[in-house]
Structure formats: structure tokens, C-alpha cells
Simulated assay, not measured.
Amino acid sequence: MRPVYPNYTIFSPTQSSQPADDYSPLTRKEFVRFLLATPTKSELRCQGLNFSGADLSRLDLRYINFKMANLRAANLTHANLSGANLERADLSSACLDGANLQGVKMLCSNAEGASLRGCNFEDPAGVKANMEGANLKGVDMEGSQMTGINLRVATLKNAKLKNCNLRGATLAGTDLENCDLSGCDLQEANLRGSNVKGAIFEEMLTPLHMSQSVR
């Protein structure tokens, strides 16, 4: 169950040393200072803020609202983004290797060219990560744990998903053209209506059944 926070804290650049009309990217130092000053039971709202190129690696970013935020080329390696809201956020060219993405919301986010190697999307509480409609062209998600993830109608063209755990994943209507799925576990995954043109299905852990994919 997602914890219920009684209070909301809105992070605004005006609360730091930045002028109100300054839209330059926020630095790690500024953000960490605000994180330390935020009550532990407050839900931090960073909707629409600019973190382009910022180093947010290894930070505790659980349940933060990054909806529509600019995280382009940001460093989020080994960050804890469990339960975070990244809907419609720009994560293009960002690095999230080894990040904790349990129960994350990434509906319609843009993560084109991002690296998500060895990420964990599996929430032990059963909350499914939702990446429906996301742009994941050319992403590298090799070795990620994605049991039950929702990737419906997402774009994964030219993506690398080697050795991923996709058991029970929803891939209905997903664009998997030229996607490398070698070594994946796709048991009980739903691939109905997905585009698998040029996709690689070598060394699969479990065989695909006709009922899983309808072209």
C-alpha cells in the first residue's frame, strides 16, 4: 500500500536562491538542501520543474511528484524512485541504471535513448509499474526486473531488453520492432496486437504460445 501523506510540500525554485523568473536547471546542491528541510511525512511536489542534466544519483526520491518535469540527460543511477510519479516527464537520454522503480508511474513519459540497465520495477506490495504509452525508443533495459509491468501501447522500437524478467507483463499493442528480447522470461505476458517485426526472441527462458501474440 502506498503511504498516505497528510501534508504536501511544493518545491519551487523561488524557495532557493534562484529568482522567480529563472528557469535554469536545478542543481543537486539546491535540491538536496530542500530534501533535508522537507518533513519526512510530506509528499514533495516537483511537477514541471527543470532538472535537466542534474545529478540526482543515489538519492531517496520515493513518492515525489515529477509529473511533466524536465529530467533530460539527468543522472538517476541507483536512485530510489519507488512510487514516484513521472507521468509525461522528459527522461530522454537520462541514466537510471540500477534505479529502484517499484510501482513507478511513467504514463506517456519520454525516455527515448535512456539507460535503465538492471532496474527493479517489482513492488513486493503488488503495485504494478505503469509505463503505458511511454516513448522508450532505443532504451537499454538489459537485466531489469519487470514482472507484471504495464507497457501497453508503449514504443520500444530498437530497445534492448536482453535477459529481462517480463513475466505477466502487459505488452498489448506495444511497438517492439527490432527490439532485442533475447534471454527474456515472457511467461504469461500479453503480446496481443504488438508489433514484433524484426524483434529478436533467442534463448528465451520460456517458449511463447500462440495465444500470447496475435498479429
Rank of each mutant, 00 (worst) to 15 (best):
D175E: 06
T155C: 15
S194R: 11
A111S: 11
M106P: 10
V104K: 00
M106C: 07
A169M: 04
L156M: 10
G133Q: 06
G143C: 02
N178Y: 04
G193W: 00
L161I: 15
L156V: 03
H78G: 13
G183S: 13
V104P: 02
L101T: 01
G173D: 00
L161F: 13
C179N: 06
E177W: 07
N163K: 08
K105I: 12
V139W: 05
G168W: 15
L76H: 02
L176W: 13
L81H: 08
N178E: 13
C95W: 13
S82H: 08
G173W: 00
R167G: 14
N195H: 15
E132C: 06
L191D: 08
C119P: 11
S182H: 15
E188R: 11
Q187S: 13
R88H: 11
K137M: 07
Q145H: 03
R167D: 14
E112I: 08
R192F: 06
L101C: 11
K137R: 05
L156H: 09
L116V: 04
D90Q: 03
L156C: 09
G183V: 12
T77H: 06
Q145D: 05
C184G: 05
A189S: 10
V139D: 02
N135H: 10
C95I: 07
T155I: 09
P124W: 03
L136H: 11
L171Y: 03
N178C: 10
C95Y: 04
S109F: 07
E122A: 12
C179V: 14
D180M: 13
F121E: 13
K105M: 15
K160G: 10
L171C: 11
A199H: 15
D140C: 11
S92Y: 04
F121A: 06
A134H: 10
E142M: 08
S82N: 14
M204S: 09
A99Y: 04
L81A: 07
Q102P: 10
S144F: 02
S109A: 12
C184L: 12
C164L: 04
E122Y: 05
E188I: 13
A199D: 08
G138M: 03
N75F: 02
V153A: 03
V127M: 05
G198R: 14
E122K: 08
